[in-house]
């Protein structure tokens, strides 16, 4: 065995381990928070904005970099929208100070 490891193999290692981490973390999410889970994963998958920034960056503007700029805008909608709407929902789940009349039985 000799030589360096192909980047694709390293990517595969990262991928498989990340799927395992995801699997175990997600099963622990409480069902009550499944909607915030969807909105926050939406925001997280918009990390694709990293690729969009690279696409948009070249100084020589051609149609590829214009598509990149559009992709940056689309992903930004998700980044901002996803995290903010998740925050808004989670605020609603904040435990209210138990008032006497609401304590129930």
């Amino acid at each position: 065995m000799s030589g360096t490891v192909d980047p694709t193999i390293i990517n595969l290692v990262v991928f498989v381990l990340a799927v395992f981490v995801g699997y175990h973390v997600i099963w622990n999410v409480t069902p009550a928070l499944h909607t915030p889970l969807m909105s926050v994963t939406n925001a997280i998958s918009s990390v694709i904005i990293v690729g969009a920034i690279l696409a948009a960056a070249p100084t020589e503007t051609d149609f590829g970099s214009i598509l990149g700029v559009i992709a940056v805008a689309l992903a930004s909608i998700n980044v901002a929208g996803g995290f903010l709407v998740t925050q808004r929902m989670l605020e609603m789940f904040k435990r209210k100070q138990p008032k006497d009349k609401e304590s129930g039985k």
Binding site: A56, T59, V69, S76, A80, G81, G82, L84, R88
Partner: peptide
């Protein structure tokens, strides 16, 4: 990408981010 068209990128982020923020609210 600091040497690239960061200006364009920032504008796109500002536009997209505002739309997202308004919708989220």
């Amino acid at each position: 990408v600091a040497r690239g068209r960061v200006d364009l990128i920032l504008i796109a982020m500002l536009v997209g981010g505002s739309v997202g923020a308004i919708v989220a609210r």
